[in-house]
Design a protein around this nucleic acid. Structure first.
Lengths: 241, 241
DNA sequence: GCGTGCCAGATTGTATACAAAATGGTGATT
DNA sequence: AATCACCATTTTGTATACAATCTGGCACGC
């Protein structure tokens, strides 16, 4: 839910967050990074030892993650990291497409000059990283760009929903390998919607962002099906567009 | 998250749900019905006595509701029922519009004949309830129709997201009063998108549903601003289109 | 008269203890 | 030999006890 990490007051020991809140952040990171693999069980006591907290805050954290869909709780049978289901990923992408389009339109109408300038900087960085062949850096900048567009839409509900979906997709993408063709096409699509955004063409920007999302969907699902048997392995492959 | 109540095994004392799960359902009902008013504090111990459970499951339930956005938790300061913020409602409606459109398009493509027939029945009931001037019944059928269209889209993620947004909006709508003009217009809009749905015209259905949502937004926000000072009162006024 | 500091009560956050349920294996029975 | 029933172990679900934090009021000093 909190898409942006709030900087701590720096001075330190003024623990204003509660323990379970920190545990949520920790577990979420562990899940998204693949440290906790999809489908794996999550024994409470083991995690307690690992994180240095008691069962109570840990359990509260698991309930929150379950509400976000990152873990599943089966009564009396413990928690498991939600397995990656290609069908669910497809469904998420379907909604994502509509959200991207909406974000693009709203960003055109509400973004400030400074925000558009920052978007340009990010886009330039994307090109540089493509030219350098740095897939991981490209991947991260790519995420930043889309998150930035969503932020420009100035709609907290959209931002929260988008963020939740993005984490689900992130787990799937980290399992998939993409080919160079898709990478190049992705960059071209970025050029396309960036042009529309620059001239504040809301309708076109929205449509192109949706198209881009749609193509990404196809690539991800294709890669997923290609490596279907390794779905539950955290094979940290090359990250893609 | 669970948009549909799962029927219990009827036989009875096989409590398969956990306590906190039941508490979540109970609290959600209390919040959505207005029994727990927006902005009011939620003292744990008092609720424990009311619901007959200990603090542990109650607290887990509060964490889940917080993740859904129905309550807010302030560290060491307790939980409050999330106040209704017109700005947030406006933001939610903005996303809702995109979701309605998506649901309409997908429903056209994926709905079965039986589902469309059921939709027709619901629509007929809506007309009957309008003619009878039964605002409450109309309101509930209206919700059913939109939920049914979402279900026809066969996208669990869309359904879950829609359901979460619908809860937030529901609380706002129960505070607002609408006029007869808007009621009539709303019914006409229903006629419109129903016609598009019947001929499986995805694009038109999506657009009309979005328009309908947009008009509803305006009516709700207008009504909210009209009775701005009574925002935190559960004035269970006439429910509207 | 007003502001500051401090203390008592109440409420929340966390840890631990106990109860209930599921898992897995062993043994008896068919 | 296969199947079923039962029990011990392990894990989860709940309740309670203790610690930390906040609220609000009062006394003291300026």
């Amino acid at each position: 839910m909190d898409s942006v990490k709030t900087a701590k007051p720096a001075a330190g020991p003024i623990r204003r967050e509660t323990l379970h809140h920190g545990v949520v952040a920790e577990l979420r990171t562990m899940i998204l990074s693949g440290e906790l693999r999809p489908g794996s069980r999550v024994p409470e006591i083991q995690l307690c030892g690992h994180l240095g907290v008691s069962r109570t805050p840990l359990r509260e954290a698991l309930r929150i993650l379950a509400a976000e869909g990152l873990v599943e709780l089966r009564p009396h049978r413990g928690a498991v990291v939600t397995p990656i289901d290609p069908n669910e990923i497809a469904a998420v992408f379907e909604v994502m497409e509509a959200l991207e389009a909406l974000a693009g339109e709203l960003a055109c109408r509400r973004g400030t000059e400074e925000e558009f300038a920052e978007l340009d900087r990010l886009h330039a960085r994307l090109h540089a990283q493509f030219d350098a062949g740095d897939r991981l850096a490209y991947f991260m900048t790519n995420r930043q760009i889309h998150a930035w567009i969503v932020a420009m839409a100035r709609n907290p509900s959209l931002e929260a929903t988008y963020s939740g979906f993005a984490s689900k997709i992130l787990r799937a993408r980290s399992l998939a390998n993409y080919d160079a063709d898709r990478w190049r096409d992705s960059l071209m699509e970025h050029d396309g919607f960036m042009a529309a955004l620059r001239r504040r063409d809301a309708a076109t920007a929205g449509r192109l962002l949706a198209d881009h999302c749609c193509h990404t969907t196809a690539a991800v699902l294709n890669a997923l099906n290609g490596s279907e048997d390794s779905l539950q392995n955290s094979a940290r492959g090359r990250l893609p567009p």
